[in-house]
């Protein structure tokens, strides 16, 4: 046996454990999701084929529609908010000073502390008997229904999610800002450009690829929101803040409608892929302008 063949075999044995784990725990489940979405699997018994029944049920399930609308709202306002505040924070903290480094540390901290505990913390702050409402009461004001009425609860959830994740996007934007050639900015200053013109004409075009990455990551993250809703509002009031992920993992799962949950997952996955591709296509022009 030649040396090359021996190396090939070594390579295969080096690669196979990693490939096996990813295939068994990521790729096969994705394929199974499609299969199970056409069954009535409840988690225990045999799965029976039911054709398109689960998908038809999505079409007539008003709770799922409501969840889809709220998920869409989170995706739109969350993606916008995360990118506006992420880029804003990155511009604010771009210079590498001591204060700015500490601020980056603070902005990023929710990512490390985790959605479950921070969600409970915001529940304890915004809830009907939470920190803010008790303060308002001692000052003699009425309470604000942050979590107890539909629209305020939706706004609260979206705001907390933006609070928790803008730091992550700020870090990505900071990395993008570091790549800007300083001489470009100096040349613009010499030409008499003001701050806004430098931002609009010099920085923003160079950041185009970073913006694409941030839009895509934010959008994917927003479509998957689950733990925040679970801990801030438990989906309430009256199910008004349930998301698609909540429908899948709490409603379908708790009722043993696992086949139905899979069908919702497949629809979510399709939406995710379509939107990701759409962002890439929409952003292609901006990115080409940079290359040119």
């Amino acid at each position: 046996m030649g040396r090359r063949a021996a190396e090939k075999i070594a390579d295969i044995s080096m690669l196979s454990p990693a490939v096996l784990l990813v295939v068994v725990f990521c790729v096969i489940p994705l394929g199974l999701a499609i299969y199970l979405s056409f069954t009535d699997w409840n988690g225990f018994d045999e799965a029976n084929m039911v054709g398109w029944a689960n998908y038809k049920r999505i079409g007539s399930d008003r709770d799922v529609h409501r969840a889809a609308i709220f998920t869409g709202l989170i995706a739109i306002f969350g993606t916008l908010g995360l990118n506006v505040f992420g880029l804003g924070t990155a511009m604010l903290l771009n210079r590498n000073t001591r204060v700015n480094r500490f601020m980056r540390f603070l902005a990023f901290s929710p990512f490390v502390l985790g959605a479950v505990v921070l969600g409970f913390l915001w529940n304890a702050i915004l809830g009907p008997r939470g920190a803010i409402n008790t303060l308002l009461k001692t000052w003699g004001y009425g309470s604000i229904p942050f979590l107890s009425q539909s629209t305020p609860a939706k706004i609260s959830v979206i705001c907390v999610i933006i609070w928790a994740s803008y730091g992550f996007h700020a870090v990505l934007y900071l990395a993008g800002l570091q790549t800007i050639d300083q001489s470009l900015i100096e040349a613009a200053v010499v030409d008499g450009a003001n701050r806004w013109q430098i931002f609009r004409r010099v920085k923003l075009p160079v950041l185009a690829p970073t913006i694409t990455v941030n839009l895509t990551l934010a959008m994917i993250g927003m479509l998957k929101v689950y733990e925040w809703v679970l801990t801030i509002t438990k989906g309430g009031p009256g199910g008004r803040t349930q998301t698609i992920a909540y429908e899948i993992l709490s409603v379908a799962f708790d009722n043993s409608w696992l086949g139905y949950g899979c069908a919702q997952g497949v629809v979510l996955m399709v939406i995710l892929v379509v939107l990701s591709v759409a962002i890439q296509i929409a952003r292609r022009k901006s990115e080409e302008d940079v290359a040119a």
Binding site: A18, A33, I220, I248
Partner: peptide
């Protein structure tokens, strides 16, 4: 191709694969 397969797994949302993962 193997690198792409391994990296591609990053984009599969856990919320979608969790129920089938139970099956596996």
């Amino acid at each position: 191709a193997i690198m792409l397969l391994l990296l591609g797994a990053l984009f599969i949302p856990g919320q979608v694969t969790l129920i089938p993962l139970i099956y596996v």
